[in-house]
Design a binder for these strands. Structure first.
Lengths: 362, 362
DNA sequence: CTGAAAGCGCTAACAG
DNA sequence: CTGTTAGCGCTTTCAG
């Protein structure tokens, strides 16, 4: 049905190899024949069959991306960076939503391996058993872990500096003068969240005698954030600031705070983590720790491609991206007097030091 | 390097066909040999090479999904529905972000065709030239348009009832008593948006003599929404309600309204469209028109699979999903007296008729 | 129930 | 510069 290379060769009275070379643009073909073949190709509407080519060359020019759920805006950004890098290199990217379900995860990885993809960017290894991970290693397919790390396996990784981020957030709140700070986070086993917590605690440590950190574990989603905030606000009435372990949690917190008829930042300061797009659009705009999500996704497939195309076996690389505090309008110093309970935006901005103009004292 | 079917066959002292049949689980193999082969397969760590299989069978068990940008939460939801349906059917899905760039679009579609995918779910046809669209038709690859329609081409489609949605939104605002309503939308050529506008205008028409609709065109993003709201609020000071053509626009509108020190819904009612997840998390939660995004994505690949697997040529199908008004807290009747400028949530809910308990009068 | 053999469409030595 | 010849790893008639 479809026109094949052989048809094309016949049409031009050349051998298949000549036709093949002309299409591929390889060396050793006279301009004249190449052009003739190319012309015939468009005339006949020839489309190379990449799967045949893949069988012959052993490379599918496809990559796999497995993550828990593309609907998470954080992942979405990673995915976009990854896809762009793949596209730039002439690769396609198959998307796999594992939902952290071990069975789906395994099935996806198997399929990818069976399709002989050039490599896999993986965001969710946690649920893979040791044995399964070793199966992957044995198979020899390049893998890079994205926003995730794993000890003891020869997988490369690209991550953000979660510890530094936690430290940054903690410091910011402390510098602002907060002394009773709640940190709302997710499951204890979650490596990234654990690092953020560690960073936060480190910040607190420096002023150990005056600061009371309260750590609440829950679901790292907006629902979880809502629930955790409710308990935090009830149990710890003296809390003046909340550090949410990610922006989704922070959104839930905002809702809870508003429901209590409290104001952000006048009554409670709030800081998030990730800097997803929506963080700039809430009321008030959320101060948060920025992770270079797009760049991380991009870097992950670039690293993967190096592994996939480099013939030699290399030791795993680990790329660590820096993070950055994005100051918006959800934090201010805790109010001590009624007077400091400022409501006009202008005054708030001035207080938060948002004014970018050169300070007169400098 | 990798163990092949031949290796497996040798190991078991059977022919390749027997081995093949055992793996595929086809009929006509004694349980005994099948089990023997299967055992050997796991023992040797045999992984079928799907690309070889694809070449032999002519089916790649892969689908393509091309959309403008996965970072748009609306698309993300479509994509997830699509991917789930693909997974359920044993297909993989390659993700293509076209950015509405004609060149990328073409390159993606070509690659997909060359990889002999079973079909393509397309959200962005608009930028394809007539000629290119016909190339696709000629190629014979199944295509279903997702959240997009195209006249004159034999492409199936699944869309939401945008007209009904616009009507719903308009009616809601009018019923609430609003008489000066602004509709903030995107480019005029955008089919879905045009339908929403049409629905809105239809709602307005019924009370033509008293209602003044003002339509503002801009960018259908939060930035665009912000900008459009600014002009709307400046030029039309009597506006009491805004219908944003999608939730992203609405988020920008919220920001603009807050910046003017106006309140939602006390001063301005706001209604969106799409019902993305974040709509339930803003302050106040956004009233909006729900599109069954996930289901639409799912339905699109199910339809595609029918086309891909059904041998016979069928006429294009068009699936139209209903929409639904989700009443949250961003709308109320326009205030006429100072007294009606209610601020407590309880009173607001009562006013908006959110109380689900049986009304005493019924 | 099992085996032999002919491809699927393309690439890649290896000769000319 | 161009043609010949083997495969790549699997499925699938067609015989037995």
């Amino acid at each position: 049905m479809a026109v094949t290379l052989e048809d094309l060769a016949n049409e031009c009275n050349v051998s298949m190899s000549t036709a093949s070379r002309s299409i591929a643009g390889s060396y050793g073909i006279s301009d004249e024949t190449r052009l003739r073949v190319l012309a015939a190709a468009t005339r006949l509407g020839y489309r190379p069959n990449r799967i045949a080519r893949g069988l012959a060359t052993g490379r599918s020019h496809t990559l796999g991306l497995v993550l828990s759920d593309i609907r998470n805006p954080f992942m979405t950004e990673l995915a976009r960076g990854a896809e762009d890098a793949a596209y730039a290199a002439g690769y396609d990217m198959v998307l796999c939503n594992s939902d952290l379900d071990p069975e789906k995860q395994v099935r996806y990885v198997r399929t990818l391996m069976e399709k002989r993809v050039g490599g896999i960017v993986m965001n969710s290894v946690g649920t893979l058993s040791r044995e399964q991970q070793e199966e992957i290693v044995r198979h020899g397919i390049p893998v890079v872990l994205l926003s995730r790390q794993r000890q003891g396996l020869p997988f490369s990784s690209v991550t953000a500096d979660n510890f530094a981020g936690g430290l940054l957030a903690g410091k910011h709140l402390i510098t602002l003068g907060h002394r009773v700070i709640a940190h709302l986070t997710g499951p204890r086993q979650h490596d990234n969240l654990r690092e953020r917590l560690r960073g936060f605690l480190k910040a607190v440590e420096r002023v150990r005698e005056e600061v009371a950190p309260v750590v609440i574990y829950g679901d790292h989603s907006s629902q979880g954030g809502y629930a955790m905030a409710k308990t935090a606000l009830k149990k710890h009435r003296d809390v003046t600031a909340i550090f949410a372990a990610n922006d989704a949690i922070a959104f839930g917190v905002m809702r809870a705070i508003h429901e209590q008829d409290l104001r952000i930042p006048q009554d409670i300061s709030l800081i998030g983590f990730d800097n997803v797009e929506m963080a700039g659009l809430t009321q008030p705009p959320l101060t948060t720790v920025h992770q270079p999500k797009y760049e991380m996704g991009k870097a992950a497939v670039e690293m993967l491609l190096k592994l996939a195309e480099g013939s030699d076996w290399r030791v795993p690389e680990h790329l660590l991206f820096g993070v950055e505090l994005i100051e918006r309008e959800s934090c201010q110093s805790p109010k001590k007097t009624l007077k400091e309970s400022i409501t006009t935006k202008k005054a708030l901005l001035a207080l938060a030091g948002h004014d970018r103009s050169p300070s007169p004292a400098e």
